[in-house]
Design a protein around this nucleic acid. Sequence first.
DNA 1: CCTGATTTGACCAAATTTGACCAATAAATG
DNA 2: CATTTATTGGTCAAATTTGGTCAAATCAGG
Lengths: 155, 155
Amino acid sequence: MGSLSDLIEQYLRDLLTKTGSIEVQRRQLAQMFRCAPSQINYVLETRFTMEHGYLIDSRRGGGGFIRITRVNWVPAPSTLEALLEMIGEAISNEGMSILLERLVQESILELKEAILLKQLIQQELENFEGTEEVKDRLRASYLRMVLIFLCGRGG
Amino acid sequence: MGSLSDLIEQYLRDLLTKTGSIEVQRRQLAQMFRCAPSQINYVLETRFTMEHGYLIDSRRGGGGFIRITRVNWVPAPSTLEALLEMIGEAISNEGMSILLERLVQESILELKEAILLKQLIQQELENFEGTEEVKDRLRASYLRMVLIFLCGRGG
DNA sequence: CCTGATTTGACCAAATTTGACCAATAAATG
DNA sequence: CATTTATTGGTCAAATTTGGTCAAATCAGG
């Protein structure tokens, strides 16, 4: 976790775990971390998207703010349906990375497992000929298969 | 023995014995050993592959890093190789059943897990259009992916 | 000398950081 | 109420900072 963006991400994440929804000021945050205000936007765009499970909402002018809301995500064993929904019919490689990261944060997977899984799926897909669209569907299929299996065996 | 690559390998190995997972910077490492950055990649590609029991994972840009994670394969690597051999490039549905039964007998899988796995793979394959030959290769791919994953996560 | 392993370097790709310019909203002013 | 000014946040592209790839050059053992 070396970059400034990582630090800002961590700061926001900490606030969010306590409250579920926060309002921050871009200017103030930028001052606090001694960076350009637009870097705050960069952090939000790369780490707090809908795929990551967050909603962004803001207002300009005096008393302006940026609100980050954690979208409902229940990490219970009964998340099988939520999991399937997140995977969907097809998923990009980046989408898979984000999903796996999220599962790590929710303690559903260990980091080591997520890395291994990602690598194995990428490896299998590399050996497959086909359009990106087909690969995206295959990727979703692999994820469904292995994640449901892990849920089904209770671990 | 005694090449620079061997030295770098030893350095990384030492770090890994302590922690099981490390993050290094390619640039810094290259400076430390006074070599071209790409030599770091060479060391990783020739000495820290998955077969060697390591996972490589990296990020570019500011604060970038290379992460090396150690994997403890639960059946010995030799057993794993045999497993891959049994799966092969392609495998029929019957072949899969036989293989899974065998893994149960060898206590690598529990019966419950084998049944679930079989069902899930069959289910995913049903949703795919293609020749039997393609399905056989896909089946092998699913099996490879999930079985290696299970071996790598430690049980 | 040949062959495979190693070393080096030129060129590529991705993630981050910064800054100039734009847009919206609130507060102050006439 | 209308206009102006101050205060925020938004966008986008260039500069910077990493790591990746690939092939030529070099080295070491047979």
